[in-house]
Design a protein around this nucleic acid. Structure first.
Length: 343
DNA sequence: TAGTCGTGGTC
DNA sequence: TGACCAAGACT
């Protein structure tokens, strides 16, 4: 049964594997561990379509882990801007520097998992795909496919233990990396969250959820909490064709990223509306932005003075080079709005 | 364990 | 159009 599953899956994968830039060319050669690691981190909670241009840019500018390790952190953060979950970029730099110092990536799953930014999934994926270790790779695709294949009725996240155990059972001793990628391709193209194209599925004769007649109801998920709405203000302070930008501190929201100064809005509370510089302000528009766990209505206040003098840490950024500032999307929207409304 | 942490695409 | 979702990690 389990041998049947991997065998059917490999047959399907031979003909239907997605052609992705981080995969090794067909023929059995192993992909570059650096590219595998980089792609896996970028792909965490992020679609293939969103990752592709970032992967191309990163591997062009930093073709090796040593090159990335030598890069200034702010350059990496700016290059990551727009991709989201910025702790990934902070950990990416830390990890690259650790690996460069070690003289290369460790090959064992347990050692990989000690690196910053590599959790259960990514450590297993790199071990299996880049190094051929038999590791049990479980992402959201595998969870969905396995939950349906074995008709696991227990809701997520409690079902993860049972799902992992089943995934372990069907993972072959050889080609665990191909098996993982095949499972993920199956989950991404056939056995998707909104659809179950069972007639095209290589595992449909083995699938318990299909036998039950309603595969889409699995996996069962806990209901989601409501999203709060917050308001905040960002401040546009301009002088001589330049705008005042700060770098956000710490590990919190958008931590380490360049940004417009703001009034301290957060997921928990509205902003204070306190301006960072004295003087007169005028309203310059509103940006609505939806984060994973709250919605934000960000008002933009523009300093009315021709020669403002902001205090504290920051930098005057040339407005004609706004695209190179590496602003996260929220602030990129705000800047775009200000600049669009002035002519 | 449950909350935090981005963004763009899809229906 | 708003809710859901995508190759999760960390605390």
């Amino acid at each position: 049964m389990t041998a049947t599953i991997s065998s059917r899956l490999f047959d399907w994968y031979n003909d239907h594997a997605r052609d992705l830039p981080w995969r090794a060319p067909p023929g059995g050669s192993r992909p570059d561990p650096y590219r595998v690691w980089l792609s896996e981190v970028m792909l965490q909670q992020t679609t293939v379509a969103a990752v592709a241009p970032y992967f191309a840019k990163f591997t062009d500018v930093w073709p090796t882990v040593e090159a990335l390790a030598a890069a200034p952190e702010e350059d990496v953060m700016a290059a990551w801007a727009g991709l989201g979950y910025y702790s990934r970029a902070r950990n990416l730099v830390k990890c690259a520097r650790t690996v460069a110092e070690m003289g290369g990536f460790p090959q064992a799953e347990a050692e990989l998992k000690k690196l910053p930014g590599l959790g259960d999934y990514t450590a297993a994926a790199v071990a299996a795909i880049a190094f051929g270790e038999r590791a049990v790779v479980v992402d959201a695709n595998v969870e969905r496919v396995v939950a349906r294949l074995f008709a696991i009725e227990e809701p997520l996240p409690a079902a993860r233990k049972a799902i992992r155990s089943r995934a372990d059972e069907i993972t072959p001793d050889n080609r665990a990396g191909d098996f993982a990628q095949a499972m993920m391709d199956l989950g991404a193209t056939i056995c998707t969250a909104r659809d179950a194209r069972c007639l095209l599925c290589p595992l449909h004769t083995e699938c318990e959820a299909r036998k039950s007649g309603d595969p889409l109801r699995l996996p069962v998920k806990a209901p989601k909490k409501a999203k709060p709405s917050r308001t905040g203000t960002a401040f546009w302070i301009e002088r001589d064709g330049k705008v005042w930008l700060v770098t956000r501190e710490g590990k919190g929201m958008l931590g380490g990223m360049r940004a417009l100064p703001d009034d301290g809005w957060s997921a928990r509370a509205d902003g204070s509306e306190d301006a960072p510089v004295p003087g007169a302000w005028k309203a310059a528009g509103v940006v609505r932005h939806s984060f994973t766990h709250f919605d934000l209505e960000l008002g933009i206040a523009q300093h009315a003075d021709a020669d403002p003098s902001p205090a504290g840490e920051g930098e005057w950024w040339p407005i004609d080079k706004m695209d190179e500032a590496g602003l996260p999307t929220l602030f990129a929207k705000a800047a775009r709005l200000v600049l669009a409304n002035r002519d």
